[in-house]
Design a protein around this nucleic acid. Structure first.
Length: 760
DNA sequence: ATTTATATCTTTTTT
DNA sequence: AGATATAAAT
């Protein structure tokens, strides 16, 4: 007990000790929020609260896992029984045991975003709607936001505001698509991400006894990152804690960055209204960052009108000034950042893992990656395409999904003709349409296939049905790993990948092996009560890119989008791509006009830094293969210059026309002015030669250098490996050339050649 | 049904 | 630059 409060400041102690009744903790960046949460739980348990009765909702599975470990250190193995996880995973678990009450099979499967999009595409074509008008993404986001606000398809169809909105955007049929979409998901025995919350709410409202069961179970409810919860999540937590009102939410309105996903800051204000006797604790002392970083962060956020009064301060050292790096191009930006990391590492004896590069969009990782590789600095990209989003993995998962749930339409579409078994797209669509028209499941339609399909297809479909039946028996009789292994073999996936001897094919084969390993690990985890394939699928469907395991012992620079960086901290942070229309994002400015959310995002990025913060931007950047001019972000102009160091530039900069013109743009900005001094003339450094091999970095081939590439040359492409140039085609004004690239295996590929390296 | 050539589009962030 | 959709050829 003494131990639990040691090292906590007054408001932190207050938050830990206030266990009964509603509590809201407003936690500034770096104020020790996680510490308070873990200590609070440990405190509850030391008071004799059973861990079964505590529910803690976190933003990522990783955060839950870490918190559980920290608690376990204090209270021991009891912590295992805590209910901890994301909203999605916790309620998926509850839904799995209660699904039958709302008409879903216990073995319901989960649609990921790709599945949802694919289903919407099918529906659009069935309704004969133009997918140029009804863009899949916008339709899905419309449906998603309806679900997040607990609006059912019928309510949507009767909501004049929504209908007028849709008419105004020339998409009056959204309500119809929504209805059909929801219907199809239901009939497929599938829930999409939003359903996991939406259906939970439905379950709780329709079955008070079920709600009551969980109300009695969870004596204490805690919600982390409350500023990023949406309306459904607000409702669920409100319902769950209704009896005892022991609810504790933790958040920081200044760090709300998920409005695009339905997150609603007004949840924080609603919270105050819902609980008149609410106790509020503010954590304002920052333990993470230097004074300069805290101050510049405050200078960022003060430009936002809408925010709770809060005063984040620190007693840490003053620290370095914030650095500003200006580059002529995105590639140079990469080089400068990599060089800075290199120097910093040597200079201060730091590890690679002390560094983090943050960007607004995933696409920006490429130039950073290339630059780091050239300096042999190890790095790791978090996010982007995750393991479970790879085609070969999704295919295998689809087999498992379909075996568990014969109604799963999207899984069916994925595997019906992979590996090829002579059932083309037309046939597959016909089966789906027949099932929908006759109001039966896809499985039943297949059993009846001879009545509406020609004999040749019937035979193939029957074989497929038998295959799945066999898999069903396999799953029933063997453990998850053995079953998965057999399914991989008998489905033909394993062979299909094995036969592909290309570099990519080999990688895919290894990925599949890795998936099987993961299943093996899962099936041998004695801590898990349910080790079935079905449980594995559920877990896997909710793994997010933020949940990647830390490879312990490895030392690398971390690269990720700012969104993924929430909750993390690094000694040195580089925020790259500080350009108008990129950050703040063009999309954000045009369509949602929410500049304040972009600014909060910038605030989040800035506050990740402990010791040193560097901001960088480029004057030119490749966008869809075309070089575009960029202007520095308005956010840079907003910074308080007292905490900034003079911009740093490369030698090359001085000689480029672009640099000169771009500098003049900054005429009015005192920050940038200090920079316009004369630099000694020096020859621009040549592109570096890569490591010990005789490869020349791709840099030496500008898109205009078509002349350097000749027919017959041996070349290497980072993705497609070694090959020969067969033919070069230049399409005039485009300044873009395509080459025919022949690989060792005789396959001919068409490539643009920007990434090719000539082997001398 | 499947492969190959050509055209078009991409434009945020993620559970 | 690269993915994906569409059209045309096999």
């Amino acid at each position: 007990m003494e131990n639990l409060l040691a090292g906590l400041n007054e408001p932190q102690k207050e938050a830990v000790l206030h266990t009964e009744g509603p509590l809201m903790i407003i936690a500034g960046a770096g104020s020790g929020k996680t510490k308070v949460l873990t200590h609070r739980i440990a405190h509850l348990m030391s008071k004799g609260v059973d861990s079964f009765n505590i529910l803690s909702l976190t933003f990522t599975n990783k955060a839950a896992k870490e918190m559980r470990m920290r608690i376990e250190k204090v209270v021991g193995t009891d912590a295992r029984n805590l209910w901890m996880g994301t909203f999605h995973s916790v309620f998926a678990r509850i839904l799995r045991s209660e699904a039958d009450k709302i008409g879903y099979p216990t073995s319901f499967t989960v649609y990921d975003t790709d599945d949802s999009k694919s289903l919407i595409k099918s529906i659009l074509s069935e309704l004969q709607l133009d997918d140029k008008v009804y863009k899949v993404n916008s339709v899905l986001s419309r449906i998603s936001s309806a679900k997040n606000r607990l609006i059912s398809p019928n309510e949507y169809a009767q909501n004049p505001i929504l209908l007028t909105d849709d008419e105004a955007s020339m998409k009056p049929k959204i309500h119809e698509i929504y209805k059909k979409y929801a219907d199809r998901c239901f009939k497929a025995g599938c829930m999409d991400f939003d359903d996991l919350l939406f259906q939970t709410c439905k379950l709780f409202s329709l079955f008070p006894d079920v709600l009551n069961k969980y109300q009695r179970k969870f004596h204490y409810v805690m919600v982390d990152e409350y500023q990023d919860t949406n309306y459904v999540q607000y409702m669920i937590t409100k319902m769950l804690s209704h009896e005892r009102k022991n609810i504790c939410v933790v958040g920081d309105d200044a760090q709300s960055i998920y409005a695009f996903r339905g997150a609603d800051i007004s949840n924080i204000f609603n919270f105050e209204k819902d609980y008149p006797n609410l106790h509020i604790v503010k954590l304002e002392q920052n333990y993470r960052s230097t004074q300069n970083i805290v101050k510049i962060a405050n200078s960022v956020i003060k430009h936002n009108k809408e925010q709770l009064r809060k005063d984040v301060w620190t007693s840490n050292e003053e620290g370095n000034l914030i650095e500003l790096v200006k580059a002529t191009s995105d590639n140079e930006e990469g080089r400068l950042v990599a060089q800075s990391i290199f120097e910093e590492k040597n200079h201060n004896q730091q590890k690679s893992s002390d560094f983090c590069i943050l960007y607004r969009t995933n696409a920006q990782s490429r130039s950073m990656e290339e630059a780091l590789r050239r300096l042999s600095i190890p790095y790791k990209i978090i996010g982007g395409l995750s393991f479970y989003q790879r085609k070969e993995i999704k295919d295998m998962i689809a087999y498992l999904r379909y075996t568990v749930n014969h109604s799963d339409e999207e899984a069916f579409k994925r595997i019906i003709n992979y590996p090829k078994r002579g059932i083309g797209e037309t046939s597959a669509t016909k089966i789906v349409v027949t099932a929908v028209d006759n109001n039966v499941t896809i499985w039943d339609a297949m059993l009846n296939v001879s009545s509406f399909m020609p004999g040749r297809v019937t035979v193939a479909v029957n074989e497929f049905v038998d295959l799945v039946r066999g898999f069903e028996l396999v799953i029933a009789s063997k453990d998850a790993f053995e079953a998965a292994k057999q399914i991989a073999k008998e489905s033909g996936i394993l062979k299909d990948l094995y036969d592909d001897k290309t570099v990519e094919g080999l990688a895919r084969y290894q990925n599949l092996q890795e998936l099987l390993n993961a299943i093996k690990e899962f099936s041998e985890d004695t801590e898990k009560e349910d080790r079935s394939i079905s449980a594995f699928l559920q877990e896997v469907s909710l793994i997010s890119t933020a949940d990647t395991k830390d490879a312990n012992g490895t030392d690398y620079v971390t690269m990720m989008t700012i969104h993924m960086a929430k909750g993390l901290e690094f000694k040195n942070v580089y925020i790259v791509g500080m350009e108008e229309n990129l950050f703040p994002s063009q999309m954000m400015l045009q369509s949602r006009a929410d500049l304040e959310e972009e600014r909060r995002l910038f605030y989040v990025a800035v506050t990740r830094a402990e010791k040193k913060l560097t901001l960088s931007y480029a004057l030119q950047r490749y966008k869809f293969g075309r070089l575009e001019n960029c202007e520095p972000s308005r956010f840079l102009q907003e910074l308080d210059a007292r905490f900034l160091k003079a911009p740093k530039k490369s030698n090359q900069d001085m000689f480029s026309d672009d640099f000169m013109t771009a500098t003049s743009k900054f005429g009015g900005n005192n920050l940038m002015k200090q920079n316009s001094v004369n630099f000694p003339k020096k020859e621009a450094p040549k592109s570096q030669v890569v490591t010990t091999t005789n490869h020349v970095a791709s840099e030496s081939f500008k898109p205009s250098d078509t002349s350097k590439l000749e027919v017959g040359m041996k070349v290497e492409h980072p993705k497609f490996g070694f090959g020969n140039v067969l033919k070069i085609e230049t399409n005039g004004s485009e300044r873009k050339a395509t080459i025919f690239f022949q690989k060792a295996d005789e396959k001919t590929l068409l490539l643009s050649f920007a990434k090719l390296m000539i082997i001398e």
